[in-house]
Amino acid sequence: MARHGSLLSRSGLTPGQLAMHAFLLLCAFAMLFPFYWMLLTAFRPSQEVFSPTFHWLPQTFVGLDNFRAAFGKAPLLRFMLNGAVICAGILAVQLLTAIPCAYALAKYEFRGRGLLFALVLFALCVPVQVPALPLYMTLAFTGTLDSYFALMLPFFLSVFAIFLFRQVFRSFPDDVIHAARLDGMGEMEILWRIVVPSAGPAIAAFAVFSVTAHWNDLYWPLVVVTSPELAPPPLGMMYFNDPDIGSSFGTLMAAATLLTAPLTVLFLFAQRHFVQGVTMTGVK
């Protein structure tokens, strides 16, 4: 007991902190295990998935066979390119529209501002499935179904982004904006050259949210896209579901590994900004 106590005190942890860390480790394990399983399965033959005993390492190491098979079976690079085009398009338009909206709501006094902001908050509560039918009809009538545009349209206006950036811009000092007006800058110039550069962390945080959501989105692509060459990654994954021989888990997991890799890399790069942005704005 005494030794135990000294060990604790030497590591500078109280029993409460120790319990907390144990709990957090458990949570981390629950989060990471599926990823591990994905990687594991990508490097072993499909049959091993069904073996009754669990092994931490592949019993038969198949190297990159599954990856090769995945590339042969579906145009994975094409899916990734589609994902990149869609995510970039959506994010660009979201930023271009949400930033001026948020700035107006945060810094301008005008009649109906409170009502407009209440509407923004209200729109946060509407899931994409609700306007799906009218959106589909619009796309069908304008003949733009089955295109990149159809994939991006519903997400161009992000109320979440408006809300997030409004919170950030509100804390931007008025004096700096006043100084810029006295210095002779126009309103748009003030916004894009003075206010936006200071919101970098929040923009990075939003970019991670946005890109993750639309890279991983299956619902809307499933509705509007029929051509395989337009399929974003999750829709592409569906092509591995072969009704004849059942799912080929090894290839499936190899493909999944490849398709999630860009997001993982993106997050690792934006991590510092992301954490800063999220804590700064109090989101989530």
Binding site: P173, V176, H178, A179, A180, L182, P197, S198
Partner: peptide
Amino acid sequence: LPPRARDVAMVFQSYALYPH
């Protein structure tokens, strides 16, 4: 006249420098 056309300059308590 808008601020820029008044030909006045202001020094603020918080200095209001452009941070970036």
